[in-house]
């Protein structure tokens, strides 16, 4: 009997698997020293609300990246969900119907993305670049570029509801995170996303319907964009083509900072949640430190590149030692 050695991993590698945690704790400690007021409950709460809204969409992006795809149109879908949801509320005055129809719209848009990618074999970058522009155009046509708002009582109630001192948004995110994590980790449907993104040909030969998995990941993304959009409406009671224009890339950044490789086949939503927490905290911290909000993108981009550089460095090192 021979025993095959298991790669134990060195401390550096171990640390890398938790880069995002190190980043998070380091950052919190730094802020606690430099600007203790950053850590007031009120501020933490507002950070968590933002993380919840963006995080829902980021879950979708994570599933797509796991499957080896990508969606640039998320920001437009998110915008469209806001606009559509408000219009539906104002017309029907019926929240359940409005929610249902907005979800349906997300499902349809996502599925269209998926079908174009899998059936017409157009790469997801081009496909979603196209649909991103189209859906944005649709929003502009629909609203004439103006802000739309609603004063629906139900929405106001959801937006201001709290439980155990936490906003309702946080619980919505928690439920989404839980369900999606469970699907990804513990169902064959979920595991097939990993197989598809990890090695398309191998997955196909194993009898997995890879086109279905990819389409499904886009459909899920569509639904999550709708949920995210509706959450924003509940928070602001308004929707605009100005909200969330760079959401797609923020979600990709959160996924990558969380430690999911862009090459597919690995990752999970929990990591992305931590990645999103880092990004949102960075945003708020810049404001707290008295820097203009315009610096946000500069710093976000920098952190993204540094994290990916580190990832690349580590995987090269791993390849060398093998």
């Amino acid at each position: 009997m021979s025993k095959i050695k298991v790669n134990k991993g060195n401390p550096l590698e171990l640390m890398f698997s938790q880069t995002v945690l190190f980043l998070l704790f380091g950052f919190i400690i730094f802020m606690a020293i430099v600007k203790p007021s950053f850590l007031t409950w009120w501020n933490i709460h507002s950070i968590l609300i933002d993380v919840s809204i963006y995080g829902v969409v980021a879950c979708g992006m994570t599933i797509l990246i796991i499957s080896g795809e990508f969606d640039l149109s998320a920001s437009s879908q998110y915008m469209w969900a806001q606009v559509l949801f408000i219009s539906l509320l104002n017309v029907t005055k019926n929240p359940p119907v409005s929610i249902g129809l907005t979800l349906l719209s997300g499902l349809i848009l996502g599925t269209i993305n998926g079908l174009v990618v899998t059936k017409l074999h157009i790469n997801s970058f081009i496909t979603t670049l196209g649909t991103m522009t189209m859906i944005r155009g649709l929003c502009l046509v629909f609203t004439n570029g103006k802000m739309v708002s609603t004063d629906n009582a139900f929405i106001r109630a959801v937006g201001s509801a709290e439980f155990l001192g936490m906003s309702s948004f946080f619980y919505i995110y928690l439920v989404a995170l839980l369900i999606l994590s469970l699907i990804l980790a513990a169902t064959n449907f979920g595991r097939r996303f990993y197989a598809t993104g990890g090695n398309l040909e191998v997955a196909r030969l194993a009898g997995i319907n890879t086109a279905f998995q990819k389409t499904a990941s886009f459909s899920i993304m569509g639904i999550l964009c709708s949920i995210g959009g509706m959450m924003l409406v509940a928070q602001l009671r308004a929707g605009s083509t100005q909200y969330g224009t760079d959401l797609s890339l923020t979600c990709v950044a959160a996924t990558v900072i969380g430690g999911t490789r862009l090459s597919g086949g690995a990752g999970n939503c929990l990591r992305t949640a931590l990645g999103m927490l880092v990004i949102v905290m960075l945003y708020k911290a810049l404001v707290y430190l008295g820097l203009q909000a315009y610096y946000q993108n500069l710093v976000k981009g920098l952190v993204l590149i540094l994290v990916v550089m580190f990832d690349l460095f580590m995987s090269r090192r791993r390849a060398m030692t093998r």
Binding site: T187, N188, R191, Y194, N199, R261
Partner: peptide
């Protein structure tokens, strides 16, 4: 090889069609 590098040995052996237990959840 026909293996998915990012997944575990066990998962590769039964790729895509893992044994499920209660409520369609995988019995890891």
């Amino acid at each position: 090889f026909n293996l998915v590098n990012t997944l575990s040995v066990a998962e590769n052996i039964y790729l895509g069609f893992l044994q499920t237990g209660r409520a369609k959840f995988i019995d890891w």
